[in-house]
Amino acid sequence: MGKRVAEGIKRVKQSQRELESSILRRCASGRDRLDKRLATGVKIIKVAPGSTGSKDFPRLWKRDEGDRTKIRGSAEWYIPRRADLRRRMLFLHGGSYVVYAPCDSVYRSLASRLASQCGLCVLSIDYRLAPEHRFPAAFEDACAALKWLSVNGPPEVNGQGKVKGAPFSASPARDLFVCGDSAGGGLALAASMAQRAFVRERLRGVIGLSAWNDLTASTPSYDTRQWCPEQCWGDAVNAGVDRKSGREEAEAYLGRRGVQLHGRDWRASPFFAPAGRLRALPSVLLQVGATSEPSLSV
């Protein structure tokens, strides 16, 4: 009897491991399929450093990739058909402040779909990344971009889809939105809180997609949402991420001992922003993932 029970438990654990692997593979493959899709009818226009006459936006920066240095900093417009050019969104990509760019397929897809579904012009920026540029470089670039976007819009495009003149037009925005995922979601909140009244009065909303708002890894979800291989429940995408690894990841951007020195700075962790700055925000939408409680039978 005891041997049969032990064998049964072993089979259940094996099936759980297989399910866990299947979930992780499905997350990765599903994300890859989705992220390669560009919304139809959305025009993509590059805004290179130096093309706007501003030294702050877009800002040219360099990244070491192996034995070569890559020039970075170009932003991209995403302009859907029949969009109101006065309604604009700043998009800030994720990647823990160390990876990705607007031209990556994962973010071109997302930015193009935001533009198409929201019916507004999206500007996706290539803010400076660590380790070459640590905190507060990304925050400064996001602030500069939002300020620029409040008084500059997309360029004029002729019937053949060609840009006439500069890759932007000097015109004030009527409605401004800011959106970002993960690290970009934290940047979206921080950059919105940092703006002067001239920009804030045009801000209509801030969106954080699984926003990284606390770089100190102090919130309860680091415990409550831990991936449980025995029950195949929790945050499967970030399996293995705990408080220690979360803080180590944050220090890639904040620098050595950065969590201790800067972790509670609202520019890095909007979770700790003072009440006055939070009250100055427009409407905020924070999206998070969730999984129902496990139901496991033997």
Rank of each mutant, 00 (worst) to 15 (best):
K3E: 15
R87A: 12
R33V: 14
L203K: 02
L90D: 00
L187V: 05
G161S: 06
G165P: 12
G30P: 02
R82H: 11
G153N: 04
V199Q: 07
I23Q: 10
Q260R: 14
C121I: 07
K164Y: 02
A145R: 00
R204D: 09
L92H: 05
K10H: 06
K46I: 03
M193N: 04
A273Q: 07
V163N: 01
L146K: 05
D141A: 03
V241M: 12
S269I: 09
T291N: 07
E156S: 14
V42H: 02
P49F: 05
H133I: 04
H133C: 09
A183G: 10
A290T: 13
S297C: 12
E251T: 06
R87H: 05
A75H: 02
G205R: 08
S292C: 09
G165W: 04
R86I: 00
R72L: 00
L34C: 09
P131L: 13
L123R: 05
V5I: 13
L34S: 11
G2P: 00
F91A: 01
S169D: 02
V237M: 13
D64S: 11
L215D: 01
G255W: 03
S169I: 01
T224W: 08
D265C: 07
G8A: 11
S54Q: 11
A268G: 01
L261G: 03
V178Q: 01
D35H: 10
A115K: 06
A290G: 15
P282T: 13
A138Y: 05
L19A: 14
R113C: 07
A83N: 03
T219R: 09
A273T: 07
V284M: 06
A101I: 05
S29P: 06
W233G: 01
D235Q: 09
D214V: 14
Y222S: 06
L114Y: 08
L189N: 01
V99D: 13
L129R: 03
K13D: 10
R81P: 00
S295V: 15
